[in-house]
């Protein structure tokens, strides 16, 4: 008689998720200056949160989103709560309900990410302006949002490739 298949909890993947989130936060806050003209970075924490919430939604509960947003606020020296609120709201609204969407639907997924980024950036702009007591400049936010949207397919494709090569994640 064949023994029942035991499905192990994916602890390794959970650790990998935590590591990628931490790396995204650190790289975002680090003086990289990859281009000479601007020192703004894509919203790497948002990209990472979005991809993980697509691949493994149960790895990204609201508390994780909140902590990542709060750490982004703290590491960048901005008023606390801005990105925590923005990420919570955008990812709660635009969360991919159906698991395993990444492998097949890159177009719709990108569109969903664009909407998520737009919500996050607008909310962050309003919250930041309220916290600072004057309207925050629009241009840096627009550059960050555009860079994030352009970079998303690349990171998503790498994640999908990695996932497909492992095969048994779905």
């Amino acid at each position: 008689m064949r023994a029942p298949i035991e499905r192990r909890p994916p602890y390794g993947l959970a650790i990998w998720c935590a590591v990628t989130l931490l790396l995204a936060l650190l790289v975002y806050a680090t003086p990289a200056r990859l281009t000479r003209s601007t020192d703004l970075m894509p919203l790497l924490p948002l990209i990472t949160l979005f991809i993980w919430s697509t691949i493994r939604p149960y790895f990204i509960p609201p508390i994780v989103i909140f902590i990542v947003g709060l750490l982004q606020d703290l590491l960048t020296g901005g008023p606390m709560g801005i990105w925590a609120f923005a990420y919570l709201l955008s990812l709660t609204i635009m969360r991919v309900r159906k698991e395993d969407a990444t492998t097949r639907d890159m177009g719709p997924l990108w569109f969903r990410f664009v909407a998520t980024t737009a919500i996050a950036v607008v909310v962050a702009w309003i919250a930041g302006s309220l916290a600072n007591g004057s309207p925050a400049p629009v241009q840096p936010m627009a550059i960050e949002a555009a860079a994030s949207i352009l970079m998303f397919p690349l990171i998503a494709l790498i994640s999908v490739r990695k996932r497909q090569s492992r095969g048994a994640f779905g």
């Binding site: 509960p61 989103i65 008023p79 606390m80 709560g81 925590a84 609120f85 919570l88 916290a131």
Partner: peptide, 26 residues
């Protein structure tokens, strides 16, 4: 995948309170 609505709402409130009180000038 559904998460606790109460927890989500609580986190929203905490984030909003932080925005309100963590002013750079005070």
């Amino acid at each position: 995948m559904r998460f606790s609505r109460t927890l989500t709402l609580t986190l929203f409130i905490i984030a909003a309170l932080l925005i309100a009180f963590d002013r750079p000038d005070a």
